[in-house]
């Protein structure tokens, strides 16, 4: 409960900072919106219409009370309600991030596991090589290479868009590769560390076999550092989504955010950034919760 309140407070602070930051940036957004040839009278009229002539605190409370009700105002550049625009984008981004996260967690986790169990074997070297590649390669490069090989060359999957589930495969892999690499490396080293622990000797002394030791004693302890890492990867995924959505022409929050920045579309930008922040905070909340479930030491004594 305390954690949830904390999360809400963070969200509030972020929206405050975001709001402040967008007002500090020089230049009248309305002027940008109208183009170079707009006359001053029209600009003033529109400024008043958008409420931008009000004192800053009034603006903030208007924005905040709207945000609570799910109303982020009307996009300057697209002329539609921000919440409506985000609704469609939300589904696409959610699908993409979820697919990427699942890919990263599952392949990263499994590869790390296998690599640790068969330390220094060929699969270990192979997995660690691939993960290093994923970590060091920028997302757009991974995206373009995958696109070229699997869509353009092999024709296994659509090259872009969101037509069916198959079109999500490449973006998800491109986006998740980096995180998968980090997770694989972390899982590998965490598991190797865990296997050195004294209680592993105790388990073996009890007569447990390799798999018993691994599944009953080692894995759960390995998951402790991993869960935190997975939640942190969520923000990496979201920032990567901006690029992936652009390369694969997916109408998602990321692309919307880019659009908002270029057009100085303040309501749209506020909406998208706040949305991403909420997801990251939510992810951390889930990780915190999982951590207490997994590690009795962090629980409060009953």
């Amino acid at each position: 409960m305390k954690r949830i309140l904390q999360a809400l407070l963070v969200l509030l602070l972020v929206s405050l900072m975001l709001f402040g930051l967008l007002r500090i940036v020089p230049g009248n957004p309305v002027a940008v919106l109208m183009g170079e040839h707009a006359n001053q009278a029209t600009i003033d009229r529109l400024t008043a219409e958008l409420g931008l002539d009000q004192p800053i605190h009034v603006q903030f409370f208007r924005y905040l009370s709207g945000a609570v009700r799910g109303d982020f105002g009307t996009s300057y550049s697209l002329g539609k309600p921000v919440s409506g625009l985000m609704g469609t984008a939300f589904v696409n981004t959610l699908l993409l991030s979820l697919a990427a996260a699942l890919f990263a967690w599952i392949t990263g986790g499994l590869c790390g596991l296998l690599a640790a169990i068969r330390k220094n074997s060929i699969p270990d070297r192979l997995f660690m090589g691939f993960s290093l590649l994923g970590i060091s390669m920028p997302v757009f490069m991974a995206a373009m290479i995958l696109q070229y090989v699997f869509a353009y060359w092999l024709h296994w999957v659509p090259i872009s868009g969101t037509a069916d589930w198959r079109s999500f495969i490449l973006p998800a892999v491109a986006l998740g590769w980096n995180s998968a690499g980090s997770i694989a490396r972390l899982v590998r080293s965490a598991l190797l560390d865990t296997l050195e622990e004294d209680y592993i000797d105790t388990a073996r002394a009890k007569g447990l076999g390799k798999s018993g030791v691994l599944f009953r004693h080692a894995l759960r302890n390995t998951m402790l550092p991993t869960v935190t890492m997975m939640a942190l990867q969520l923000s990496a995924l979201l920032s990567g989504a901006v690029i992936t959505e652009t390369v694969f022409s997916i109408n998602g929050i990321g692309r919307l955010a880019v659009q908002a920045i270029t057009a100085r579309d303040i309501p749209l930008l506020q909406g998208t950034v706040l949305f991403s922040t909420a997801i990251v905070i939510f992810g951390n909340l889930v990780a915190d919760f999982l951590y207490t479930v997994l590690d009795p030491r962090t629980r409060k004594e009953a």
Binding site: D198, Y199, T202, H217, R220, N221, L294, D295, P296
Partner: peptide
Amino acid sequence: MSSLNPVM
């Protein structure tokens, strides 16, 4: 301490 599994 270290010979007992901390999460079990």
